[in-house]
Computed example of a mutant assay.
Amino acid sequence: MLEFQQDNRFFLFNFDRAFEGQMDFFNPDFWRKQHRIEGVAKGRGTTYFLRTEDWFGVNCALRHYYRGGLWGKFNKDRYRFVGLADTRSFTEFHLLQRLYEAGLPVPKPIGARVRKGKLGICYQADLLSEKIENAQDLTVLLQGQTLPSETWWQIGKLIRRLHDLQICHTDLNAHNILVQQTENGQKCWLLDFDKCGEKSGDFWKTENLNRLHRSFVKEVTRMKIRFSEQNWADLIAGYQQ
C-alpha cells in the first residue's frame, strides 16, 4: 500500500511504488491526454473506463462521488470531513480490499483520493477500481435473455458469502450485479460498496434480500427484464445452501 498527503489531498494506492503523475490519476483530463479513456458510463455522474493494464495489471474504472436525492441538487459532491478513515473513498477502498482478500468476486481497489476544501470542513472523493472485463449489468443482460438456474444459484451463494462476513450491501439491487462471460461459463460479481460495511446480528439479512427482490420486480415493469419467481427461488436455494 502507498499512502501519502500533498497539500489538502490524501492518496491511497494498492501498490508500493511511485508512478510519475500519480497525483493526476483521479483527473479525467490526465487520462484523456494519455489517450487511455476507452469508454464512459453515465449515471449520477460519469464513470471513466481506462486502459491501465500495463500500469496496474488491470484496466480501471474511475468514479467521482456525487450526492443523490434532494440534497444533491444543492450540494452535488461535497461531504463533511470528520476524519480520513470515515471518508467515502477510503472507506470503500478498505472494504473492497477486505472482500477481495477474502476471495469474493468484487473489483480490486486500485486507488482512492480525498481532497479537502480550503477551510478543511468539507471534502470531495474519488475511487479507482478494477474494470470487470466482458461483463454486463444483470438487468441489461436480462432484457435480452433468460439465465440458467446455475447463474441464479451463484448469485444467491455470493450474497450468502457476503452476509457470512457480516457485510451489509446497503444498495443491493439488480444493477449492482455484473455477469461476466468466461471460458468456463458465467461468473457473477458485486459492485458499488459505497456506504456499505459490517453489521452485527442477522436481523437485517432478510430485509437485504427483500430489497434485492423488489428491485427485480421493479425492473420487470420498467426495463422489461426476464425475471420470474422461479428465478428468485433458485437464488434463494443458492443462498440457503
Rank of each mutant, 00 (worst) to 15 (best):
M1S: 10
F4Q: 02
N8C: 01
R9V: 01
F10L: 14
F10M: 10
F11P: 06
F11C: 09
N14E: 05
R17I: 01
G21M: 00
M23P: 03
D24I: 00
F25L: 01
P28Q: 05
F30K: 04
W31Y: 08
I37D: 08
I37N: 12
V40L: 15
G43H: 10
G43K: 06
Y48V: 02
F49T: 02
W55R: 06
C60K: 01
A61R: 04
A61V: 07
L62K: 06
Y66G: 07
W71I: 09
N75E: 02
K76M: 00
D77M: 04
F81K: 05
V82Q: 15
V82C: 14
V82A: 13
D86A: 06
D86L: 03
R88G: 12
E92T: 10
L96E: 01
R98P: 00
Y100M: 02
Y100H: 15
V106L: 02
V106K: 02
C122L: 15
Y123K: 04
Q124W: 08
D126E: 11
L128R: 08
S129A: 13
E133C: 01
L138Q: 08
T139N: 15
L141I: 01
Q143D: 14
G144L: 13
Q145V: 00
P148V: 06
E150C: 01
G156E: 08
L158V: 09
H163P: 08
Q166N: 14
C168D: 15
T170H: 14
N173E: 10
I177E: 02
L178E: 03
Q181R: 11
E183Y: 01
G185E: 11
C188K: 02
F203I: 01
K205Y: 05
T206D: 09
S215E: 07
V220D: 05
R222F: 00
M223H: 15
R226L: 10
Y239I: 02
Y239W: 13
Q241K: 12
